[in-house]
Amino acid sequence: MKRWTHPQDFIALIVGVYALLSPLWTTTTSKATTTMVVLGALTAVLSVIELVRPDTLSIEGLTALMGVLFFISPWVMGFSDMRAMSWTAWAAGVITFVIGAADLRVTRSHRGTVATTL
């Protein structure tokens, strides 16, 4: 697979950076800020790794996992009463999970095709 050719990884990068920066314009607490910055940074780093090294093992699965962590974070970290930050986490979670799951499916089917043709 060629580097820098996965549009879904660019979307995950944008979502990660958006989540990372969202405390700048969203009413927040220190716990919510820390959560969004950490999850956003990890998502952005994972997507850059996948863009640079598309053959890296199971990064797509980690991207989908980041989506789940984003989605549950308002309840787990106790900021579900903060509407704007909660909706940011939920939207980032759904988008990241869908992107990660779709990328996992494409990558696995591509690897399966390569393996059967060799």
Rank of each mutant, 00 (worst) to 15 (best):
W87C: 10
L69E: 08
V45L: 14
T33W: 05
S109A: 08
I72T: 03
G16P: 08
H6K: 04
T29C: 02
W4C: 03
T63S: 09
A89R: 03
T35G: 05
L21P: 06
A19I: 11
L21R: 10
M85H: 05
D103V: 00
L42E: 14
R108A: 00
E50I: 01
D55K: 08
L62W: 15
V114H: 00
I59D: 02
H6N: 11
W87T: 12
I95V: 15
G78V: 07
I72R: 01
F10R: 07
L21E: 09
L118W: 04
L46A: 08
A19M: 15
I14Y: 05
W25F: 07
L24Q: 08
L57N: 02
R105V: 01
Q8K: 10
K2F: 09
R3M: 12
L20F: 15
T107E: 03
A41S: 15
T5K: 14
V76A: 13
H110P: 01
S73C: 07
F79H: 04
V17Y: 09
S47V: 03
E50R: 10
S58A: 11
D9S: 06
G40L: 07
T113Y: 04
L46N: 08
S58L: 11
A92D: 13
G112M: 04
T34F: 11
V37D: 05
S109M: 00
T117L: 01
A12Q: 09
V48S: 12
P74E: 06
T63I: 14
W75E: 13
G40C: 14
W25P: 01
M82P: 01
V98P: 08
W90G: 03
A41T: 15
I95C: 12
M77G: 06
V17I: 15
M36W: 08
I49Q: 09
I11V: 15
G61P: 01
T29A: 03
T56D: 06
T113L: 05
S73Y: 05
V106Y: 00
S80Q: 09
F79W: 05
G16Q: 12
L62F: 13
G40K: 12
R105P: 01
L51Y: 03
I99H: 00
I49D: 07
A89I: 05
V38G: 09
W25Q: 03
M85C: 02
T63F: 02
R111F: 03
T116E: 09
I11L: 15
L65G: 07
T116M: 09
D9I: 00
G61R: 02
T116S: 13
L13V: 07
K2I: 07
G78E: 11
F10C: 04
A32Y: 03
M66D: 10
L46M: 14
T107S: 10
L57E: 01
T34I: 05
R83I: 10
W75G: 08
T34N: 13
V68D: 07
A101Y: 00
L24N: 05
V38I: 15
R53Q: 14
I49Y: 06
M66S: 13
L42H: 09
T56A: 13
V98K: 06
V52I: 13
S109Y: 00
T34W: 13
L62H: 11
